[in-house]
């Protein structure tokens, strides 16, 4: 065992000299940017669609009942499907229907589908954190729904929405590792590539781990800072089961 360890150490040193060269750095940096780009596009669009979804979910009236039900069904379903399964579902659907989308696009679509559901819930909770009496008061003064949202609700809700939405985004940087399974050339795929070239797993995947950490940790810190800055009053009795809520809500070590 001890002998073996020394051998590995030798191999490691030998490979390192070959591995840490400029070309590989460029390759890895590109892969890292792909990871970041698809997370930004996916979660950014997810935020916009999330707002739309919440708007429909909160539109009153019998006429909108089917729309509300569709939206609720959407949100509750896609928060309960593994990202990996959704990725393959989207990929095979796109291919089955003969659409010519790049793998990157397929990954982005999958992220949007999931993040819309999750961020939609985050936004909804943010709006709910603004007390109903604020709506009533605006109603009594003849504000329209949009005017109330614009002048009263959103200025209060964004502080509650932003920290968890950002935390979700940071969490998804890591989840995009799964897109390597449909062949997107991002950070994890780059690790696999080097591992397949014969580089030690400790070296290839170890480097990739460090790069993920470099992407994720500063943003995690930024998220904590944001949370402290906005010192949002979070609902105390958040006892409901919000699928995955805990995963992106952890903060402050």
């Amino acid at each position: 065992m001890y002998e073996g360890f020394l051998d590995i150490f030798d191999v490691f040193l030998e490979q390192s000299a070959e591995f840490y060269v400029w070309d590989n750095a460029v390759y890895l940096f590109r892969a890292m940017m792909t990871t970041l780009t698809m997370t930004i596009i996916g979660c950014g669009l997810g935020f916009i669609f999330g707002m739309i979804v919440v708007y429909f979910r909160r539109t009153p009236g019998l006429m909108f009942w089917p729309v509300r039900m569709t939206v609720i069904f959407y949100v509750e379903t896609f928060r309960r499907v593994p990202f990996l399964v959704l990725l393959f579902l989207v990929m095979f659907t796109v291919k089955g229907f003969g659409l010519d989308f790049s793998l990157f696009t397929i990954a982005c679509i999958s992220i949007v589908i999931i993040s819309t559901a999750f961020i939609g819930e985050i936004i909804r909770a943010g709006l709910d954190s603004v007390h109903q009496t604020q709506w009533d008061t605006a109603d009594a003064m003849n504000f329209s729904r949009l005017q109330t949202l614009r002048h009263v609700i959103l200025p209060q809700a964004w502080k509650v929405v932003l920290p968890p939405a950002f935390a979700f985004f940071v969490m998804f940087i890591k989840d995009t590792a799964l897109t390597s399974q449909v062949g997107v050339l991002e950070l994890t795929q780059a690790g696999k590539y080097y591992n397949n070239l014969g580089y030690s797993a400790i070296l290839s995947f170890g480097t990739v781990l460090v790069l993920y950490f470099i992407l994720s940790y500063p943003m995690t810190r930024l998220g904590w800072w944001m949370e402290a800055r906005l010192h949002t009053r979070r609902r105390d009795e958040r006892a409901e089961f919000e699928v995955g809520a805990t995963a992106y809500e952890l903060r402050g070590t």
Binding site: T133, Q134, D136, T137, A140, M141, F143, Q156
Partner: peptide
């Protein structure tokens, strides 16, 4: 509602506006 005003028991001021803006918002914007 154009002819009535109500002062709520719990005041219900808009939390995101200062006193002046609380008073002016409806006359100006609505």
């Amino acid at each position: 509602r154009d002819r009535f005003s109500i002062v709520f028991q719990q005041f219900n001021l808009f939390q995101n506006m200062d006193a002046l803006r609380n008073v002016t918002i409806a006359p100006v914007k609505i």
